[in-house]
Design a protein around this nucleic acid. Structure first.
Lengths: 375, 375
DNA sequence: TTGACAAATGAGACCGGTCTCAAATAGCAT
DNA sequence: ATGCTATTTGAGACCGGTCTCATTTGTCAA
């Protein structure tokens, strides 16, 4: 990591002033569009600037004004189209309001998130929009607040932190999806999430570090309990992140003696993974297994069958959070807002009745699995 | 767009120096890790910094050093996973080398690209990685070079501009895909691209503003000509951008008297659009129509049938461009490099023989297609 | 004609760092 | 003890803007 950086000397305000034969202050007034200046002065200065190819140094500008007209955005994974859409929403609002956006990636790791916060605060962003990687490790977020910079949480809330947040109604959404599966006749429903965990088995809330995940699990459990399903939590699986463990987790789940007959996939990446595993196992959707996934990713509408999804207003999540942030930056005061956007269940064709008539719970004599696996 | 921005005064180097009872210069040496300082001084300063919660102002730092350790990236569309992957490649190389990334979106419009360049140069980025929206409108890129800042083009070259670029072998890739379709028996092959155009019909190279598009069309035409296909260009269609026109364009194409029997889709967004239209038309792939798409997007592997694609090393495109850029920033000199990465044809199941025995060109009596299609 | 006031302009401080340079101190050989 | 060099420290200029304040010029009413 060499440090030698070569950079040509650029045209400064002073240069322009000299060329135009006016003082630095006058040139600054014209070029910075503030204060007063006579038409002739403007003419001269603008001309000189054009001739020299002057370009203001925003760094210097920000340094004196104390504001950078820049907002920092930290997301879990830029590559995930989910965040891509949110970022587009943010960008559009920001640039319409004359703000620039600096984007950073946390890879869903608190450490990298902290580093990113440092960097962005160092660059003196006027505010931050963050998709926090954890709801417990939050000193760096408190530091943001202490520094007086605006902060908005996107997609995930942090109960302990009094801060504006824009989220979706995860609990309601999960409950709705669960009810839909229950109404189709399912009693053994699996819930699979990517949330990092050493242990794929769900043992309790203390394993979960994200409100989204917790809320969804709660919605799932509540809807299950409402119809008297016993131990719905036994089919919850964690850590189905990226290619790695997910295949095994899902395969294990499906080879249980009382295997689940439906799966709720907690995000589109997991959903895609689940879909592939199911297909590789030679099972068919929804005949053998029903599937509902979070996030209306583009792939979900072109599979056979297309997948029933919980569509999240993620573009609007971006828009709203940027609007709130910019209001704060420009002086809005008041208690932190928590904006909850509604989700929508888009019915497609991945939900059907559970496969065989099969005794549930108690005195079940499990019969041999009939399915042929094609390979 | 209000301008009032409230910001608490932050802890400065001067404050730390005062607290530690040393000079500003000494505090700066300790906190900036340069020059020399005795252990006791370090101790005192570090302690004071911790107590006050000091955080260096990178703006001020950049201003004096003249370098910001930041690189600007301008892509056509953040939301497109294609660019998402490239950006990840860039980010990883950049942060490993201690550089930050500022991301901007051009929406594939030259005007917005120019504005973004202004903004980023204003923020004094040390270098830029750009996916240029046009190969002809390039004054702003020449301005970047004149300013002495490093510049690397990603994915698309600009022949007139002497500048480092990292691209893929588009012509070869298109030719390979075309040959594959030809070998499967196709003679009427459509090429559909998203490139903006008022007129969806291809009339000549002057309509095309991107090397990628041009190269691919050339590869397509060359491979077609090589086996004596007459007027292959009649099936080229432009402007199939986003939801808008694409549906009509594709439907028109397929309702021609001698409709094409295969389609080459120029990127994954167009490919997805094509897939949906085909399905809505009730046609089946590959029985009625074969399809090959550029970019191995995730949806292509889960459709029925999965789509044969030209896989582009887009993550590596990002990695390589960032490496070249950083080398330039840190002083590397020499003629501009043009790095061409290889693509790969991933065969899946969307290519088959053309459908019905149907007279082709002149008096060819095409023989019945032997392949059985399982559906 | 003169005074009062508004508009235009310039001089220079300032933002928060880096970095040069000179002064102060320490270490060591003679 | 003395001189010489190496190390540590502080003072202050500088980066390129913004912005305050004083000065100059112009306008108009009394």
């Amino acid at each position: 990591m060499s440090n030698k950086i070569v950079q040509k000397r650029l045209v400064t305000l002073q240069d322009v002033a000299r060329e135009a034969g006016v003082s630095k202050a006058t040139a600054a007034r014209v070029l910075g569009s503030y204060g007063t200046a006579s038409p002739e002065m403007k003419e001269k200065v603008l001309n000189a600037a054009r001739v020299l190819g002057y370009q203001p140094n925003e760094l210097a500008r920000s340094m004196t004004t104390g504001r950078s007209r820049t907002i920092g955005v930290i997301v879990g994974d830029i590559e995930n189209p989910y965040f891509g859409q949110a970022v587009r929403g943010i960008s559009e609002v920001a640039s319409a309001a004359g703000f620039d956006v600096i984007l950073a990636n946390s890879g869903e790791e608190v450490g990298r998130e902290q580093a990113a916060v440092q960097v962005l605060l160092g660059k003196r962003v006027d505010g931050l929009i963050i998709t926090p990687a954890s709801m417990s490790d939050i000193q760096h977020l408190e530091a943001v607040q202490r520094s007086g910079r605006a902060l908005v949480l996107l997609d995930r809330a942090i109960p302990k932190l009094k801060v504006d947040s824009v989220i979706t109604d995860d609990k309601a959404a999960a409950a709705l999806a669960t009810r839909m599966l229950i109404e189709a006749g399912h009693r053994r429903i699996a819930y699979i999430t990517a949330t990092a965990s050493d242990d794929p088995i769900y043992r309790g809330p203390q394993q979960i570090s994200l409100t989204t995940v917790m809320d969804r699990i709660n919605g799932f459990l509540a809807a299950s309990a409402a119809v008297g399903i016993k131990h719905p939590e036994q089919y919850i699986r964690l850590g189905a992140s990226r290619q790695g463990a997910s295949g095994r987790i899902i395969a294990d789940l499906l080879s249980m003696p009382h295997r689940p007959t439906a799966i709720l996939a907690s995000d589109n990446v997991v959903g895609l993974e689940v879909f592939k595993v199911i297909r590789n196992l030679g099972m068919s959707i929804p005949a053998d297994l029903s599937l509902i996934a979070f996030h209306d990713a583009d792939w979900t509408s072109v599979t056979s069958p297309p997948i029933t999804v919980i569509s999240q207003p993620v573009y609007n999540l971006g828009v709203e959070s940027a609007q709130i942030l910019i209001k704060r930056i420009t002086g809005a005061v008041g208690a932190p807002k928590r904006l909850v956007l509604a989700t929508e269940l888009i019915e497609r064709q991945s939900v059907g009745a559970p496969p065989a008539p099969q005794d549930d719970e108690k005195k079940v004599k499990s019969r041999p699995v009939a399915k042929a696996v094609a390979g």
